[in-house]
Design a protein around this nucleic acid. Structure first.
Lengths: 241, 241
DNA sequence: ACAAAAGTGTTTCTATTACACCCATGG
DNA sequence: CCATGGGTGTAATAGAAACACTTTTGT
């Protein structure tokens, strides 16, 4: 409490920025993708001592000439080659000792990407690897907390806005969609009720094609009706599963 | 995109913090209280040119020796004298030019406080004033955006966790509670259904006392059953109005 | 012919909404 | 005695949950 005076600008100061101490700022990105029946996170091997070789989120420092959101985008682009990725700020971690060696304030973002055959990550340099969220290895610093915060945030967000489609390919089956939701929400969703609920929203277009990979019968592919989706978003609708 | 190389630590650097540029960090607090039938925000007159005299949120710089959350708490304490206030980080604003004169990264928090007769704010120095959220004056910098973000956040949060009680005195009437919810959510709530829903949760204790200020008949006072409230919180329940 | 996943309808139950009247009291 | 806000019950509706069987086809 003795430090209170540092925290409101003193009235005597004509330029109240002067004399304030600057701090290091960074961004860390929880890059999420969907594979099989589970959400996955992209992790790298941390390249420096004393945590060299431990698993880590992907991050970067915020330089004076980039917006903080852009810093996050640049990090994702560097790691995956992708631009125009759905991203969202999750939380800013600013405890004094969260990084032992230095005061760093880090804003955590999540990114939702489609894992496609063409996707190339920085495997050679950083051993970038996809981990299913049920099997996350120990992470450096407070990255485990960041991951938790990102997943919590995503779970909550997905109830208001079906962002899940960002994680699926353009065409997908109802089972894939349901598996995705199950993995994000961490609980089973009844097949019939799920299908009915999703279809009632009218945001999906049923295609004539079938995907025959997952079963002998084959299952119909769907595609997101982006116009309708945007319309509902603007109305701020709920997507309660 | 030319700046990508700045954004992942280069592998050659043994101490990857070295050489990074530090930035100014601050916190701004949306201090919310409830008065009459409406939410109010505490604003001050900004004390420096070129915005001297314009209305502003309350903020302060983050110094190297305080956690970012603590910086926010200190700001609230300085302004209201209150500790142990319910606070929550809302969002971090980090665009390059959000403050014209300087690059500042600002984390916005909201604080929920009880406006009580004993509450003294920094009225003399900063003209601290409560504004109803329906009548907010123009604000400096991006503070209007911050306020919007804080209210958006509160509206969403209140569906998962009935944080509204932080804004009410220990004893309150059902009408006060309903008015509060109406003001936060920005829509009318049917009296009977509201009462029923709240009571069904069993988080309120009905007292024998009546408040006679608002009507001749008087209305019963209630008090939050904190044990039950905490129990439900831990279960992560919904409080859907 | 059978295994494996897809697809679909109906019933039950619960929660939400909408609605109107009596109550207690101070003036 | 009446104006004011407080307080309550019920019926109608909509939405969610629970449930089991048929379809298709590759092997």
């Amino acid at each position: 409490m003795k430090r209170i005076n540092n925290h409101l600008p003193s009235l005597e100061h004509p330029n109240y920025h002067a004399g304030e101490r600057a701090l290091l700022n960074s961004v860390d990105c929880v890059i999420l993708g969907f594979q099989g029946i589970e959400l996955h996170v992209l992790l790298i091997r941390f390249p420096y001592e004393p945590f060299k070789g431990h698993w880590s989120l992907i991050g970067g420092f915020v330089t004076p000439d980039v917006d903080i959101d852009e810093a996050a985008r640049i990090t994702v682009k560097k790691m995956t080659g992708l631009s125009d990725v759905f991203m969202q700020q999750v939380y800013t971690f600013g405890d004094i000792n969260r990084v032992p060696s230095e005061r760093v304030i880090t804003s955590c973002y999540f990114a939702l990407i489609r894992i496609e055959p063409t996707l190339v990550t920085l495997t050679s340099t950083y051993e970038a690897t996809w981990f299913p969220i049920s099997q996350i290895p120990p992470l450096v610093y407070d990255h485990a907390r960041m991951l938790d915060a990102a997943l919590f945030n995503l779970r909550r967000k997905i109830r208001f806005q079906p962002v899940g489609f960002e994680l699926l390919p353009e065409k997908f089956t109802m089972s894939e969609l349901r598996n995705l939701y199950q993995s994000i929400l961490g609980r089973e969703l009844e097949k019939r009720n799920f299908t009915r609920k999703v279809l009632k929203m009218n945001i999906l277009q049923k295609l004539r094609e079938k995907d025959k990979l997952s079963s002998k019968k084959g299952s119909y592919l769907f595609r997101l009706n982006k116009k309708r989706y945007q319309f509902l978003l603007d109305k701020g609708f709920l997507f309660d599963m």
